[in-house]
Design a protein around this nucleic acid. Structure first.
Lengths: 227, 227
DNA sequence: GACCGGTTGGACAATAGTGTCTAATTTGAC
DNA sequence: GTCAAATTAGACACTATTGTCCAACCGGTC
């Protein structure tokens, strides 16, 4: 028996989760200054005092929310990076599926939008926010992708001079349509995710593919490519 | 004589400008809720009452700031779009120079960052913000670029199936490096602007160029492209 | 049933911000 | 110098928010 008497730890934990979720929601909607503890308490169906019991002050709560979301995002990111394609066959399909997963579970989902918004709005005032974002969050996607492309370039007909640059451009293309869509608040549909990722990967492979696809070479041939 | 007596309209105008500049600064740094009128007044070297004389309430001031910056950005955007390359010779250089201008004077400058931040943070609460952003601001770059690429594709060896997509991807590539850089608060150096734009344009042209550059065809040939 | 930690609602002081009002002051045109 | 509009500093009422304190109150565990 861990601690004798009182409500179970499961109850406490449930409260904590409830508070963190509500706080994330409100902080994201209203920003740090605009969010009030009362509003968070109401949304979490919890008394204000309970929040102050768990988190000493507003800033503590804020940091806990950020850390919580970064942990989740980090876990998702880790598992998704493990699915980066390693072989050349079906490269377009595999890369597209990878891009869809990245967008759906890391970048365009609730957590991803929250973190991005936070870094952008509160980054100036909480520099350590940017620090932990770079170390634990989506900030490290770039370098991770860079390494994965390096490995892939050995197995697949890719010609990549600057791996870091390619990784950044891959990400930029992946996110190109998404920011537009998610401005309207709603999450992108599965179909939007698919076509957007496919478009991005097609362009990326046209730019970095060593060997042209059959269609492309046919096109190029028909249009009179220099011998 | 417009109005007799009293401080000149030039004086009034100077105050207005001073207030708008300071308000933009503070709103951008603190967000709408976090910004206080007193802080803005101090930064503008103006009494609080003067602000209330010019702008009835905080929200009025906020909207005036947004409108002011959108006007400036719009003018800059208009004049830059007019410099979009029309001929095929020196396409890479011309597109690169265009991209640099776009980034330097519309997207990465103070105004551009402000508007982007604003739309992202206050867009949910002020939907009309998104509306005027789409109608008067950078939100319309996409469609404008799409039309320009359509025209360019007639004169240059570009093969663009989906013009809107190409425009979005061009912008995404253009901005790929910038967001990273401007997260740190400081404006990108001229050198960063140049290399970033050149990288983006190179990739874009590799993806959408009908005719390969000599280097590229040599490379492709040397590496055994299918006949 | 009694205990005990966590929870609740409400009262509370302290602080900060908005928007108004006023009297004194500055500014530039005449 | 005079005048009128604009500006200023400060006081002010009002509201919202943070963070604390406390008595009452659950809900398991013994």
């Amino acid at each position: 028996m861990p601690t004798a008497g009182g409500p179970t730890q499961k109850g406490q934990c449930a409260k904590r989760v409830s508070i963190l979720d509500a706080a994330a929601e409100v902080f994201c909607r209203e920003g740090f200054s605009g969010a009030s503890i009362d509003e968070i308490a109401a949304e979490a169906c919890v008394s204000r005092q309970t929040i102050y019991n768990h988190y000493r002050e507003k800033e503590t709560l804020f940091m806990a929310v950020v850390q919580d979301i970064l942990d989740r995002t980090n876990a998702a990111l880790f598992s998704i990076l493990a699915t980066f394609p390693k072989r050349a066959d079906n490269l377009e399909d595999d890369l597209t599926a990878f891009a869809v997963r990245l967008n759906r579970n890391c970048i365009c989902n609730q957590d991803g939008k929250f973190i991005q918004k936070l870094v952008e709005t509160e980054g100036e005032r909480y520099p350590e926010l940017i620090k932990i974002w770079r170390e634990q969050g989506p900030g490290k996607i770039d370098t991770a992708l860079s390494a994965l492309f390096a490995r892939l370039a050995h197995a697949a007909p890719l010609e990549i001079d600057d791996l870091d640059l390619a990784a950044r451009q891959f990400l930029a293309l992946i996110k190109a349509d998404m920011q537009m869509i998610s401005l309207f608040g709603e999450a992108p549909t599965e179909e939007q995710l698919q076509t957007s990722a496919r478009n991005a990967v097609k362009t990326f492979l046209r730019a970095y593919g060593k060997v042209k696809t059959e269609q492309a070479s046919q096109k190029a041939g028909a249009l009179g490519q220099p011998a």
